[in-house]
Design a protein around this nucleic acid. Structure first.
Lengths: 197, 197
DNA sequence: ATTTAAAATTAGACCAGTCGTCTAGAGAAG
DNA sequence: CTTCTCTAGACGACTGGTCTAATTTTAAAT
């Protein structure tokens, strides 16, 4: 079994597609563009994915898997209070989303609106992925309550939900205005909502 | 000059397109679908708009114009405090965005991510439109400070920005989850941020 | 009132591009 | 030497936005 090679090509397609779709969207990008960039013939694509939609689901799945891994490392930095770890996360978010190049930006923000009325499968992955992120944030909020480094205005999972959504909205508006002010507003509001000032 | 008829057809195309694009997005919808639905021949389109992109700009322009008008009536309801008028606005937002049918929903939320990396023209309209909404909200926040019906955590325009973005994010996530919880979280957070509890 | 010039509107051709299919064969594994 | 995975890319059926040329409508002038 050549399973490693199999997943290499598959993963290579996914890796190539990420920055392209991240900047142009899902519908606007054709398979041709992705496959030419990846140097993979079209015939192979349908060996690894049964349709463009299935490919979209896989793209989001791997994206969230990676994201959650990174999130984990940020939120478990040793020698920092829960509040500090959390704020470092938002700071990362700000830096990434304030960058001009859309390639590295959050796929959830980019695709949520476009895709969730279009593909039930992709919508579900988005739902599960964002849910997992929020759950992980809630966990750190709990820790912050325990170590008394922050004081959320409400129950942890409720607070995590609102904070995550606040940042989604800020990122969306940052796409519109093309500057970091929306994100800086979010940072300020976040501090306030966590009782950090 | 048949100027009225001209703008009628033009406006008719715009009106027809709004719900379609509101539910399927900009790129995913072809001119054919819009024009067939509108009963306008394809050849006519380029008489009224110089390109699909120009049409997109016009669509957003009329959308924001209408929106600001409605916003104005909600925020000037007589016999209510600034806080009450503002909360009624968010409640409207919640009701619209929690509805299953995407046709009536906010075009800014639907199109921001998809379009602002794609068309500079549409991005600018989005920027100007959301800016105007935020400015109008800030005005009511000021009034609320004046009549002492609410106590924002920061300067009015900063607060208006964060609130609007919070609701954009909540709407985006409501699209993902297909329920009203994200919006209810936003409502709760809003009340808290305005010192209404 | 009839003709004519001009403008508004439409029909449909156009080609590049879409997703997905399909047949053929290359390459590796057992 | 058979079997199976994977590659190759032409192909079909269709849709995309755009544009030019023709038609219809309007207004003006005789």
């Amino acid at each position: 079994m050549k399973l490693s090679a199999t997943s290499n090509v598959r993963q290579h397609i996914l890796d190539t597609a990420k920055p392209i779709i991240s900047s142009k969207g899902f519908v606007a990008v054709g398979l041709n563009e992705i496959l030419q960039t990846a140097g993979v013939p079209k015939g192979s694509f349908y060996h690894y994915f049964k349709s463009k939609e299935a490919f979209g689901e896989a793209l989001l799945e791997t994206y969230f898997a990676d994201y959650l891994l990174q999130l984990e490392t940020v939120l478990t930095q040793p020698g920092a209070s829960a509040a500090q770890r959390l704020m470092r996360y938002w700071q990362y978010w700000l830096d990434i989303e304030a960058d001009c190049d859309p390639k590295g930006k959050c796929l959830a923000v980019k695709l949520a609106a476009e895709v969730s009325d279009l593909s039930e499968g992709m919508r579900k992955v988005l739902e599960q992925g964002t849910g997992a992120i929020i759950a992980r944030l809630a966990q750190t909020l709990e820790q912050g309550v325990a170590d008394d480094s922050l004081r959320p205005w409400t129950e942890s999972s409720e607070a995590a939900t609102s904070l995550y959504q606040l940042w989604m909205g800020a990122s969306l508006r940052a796409k519109i205005t093309r500057d970091r002010k929306p994100l800086e507003s979010a940072l300020l509001a976040t501090k306030r909502m966590l009782g950090l000032d």
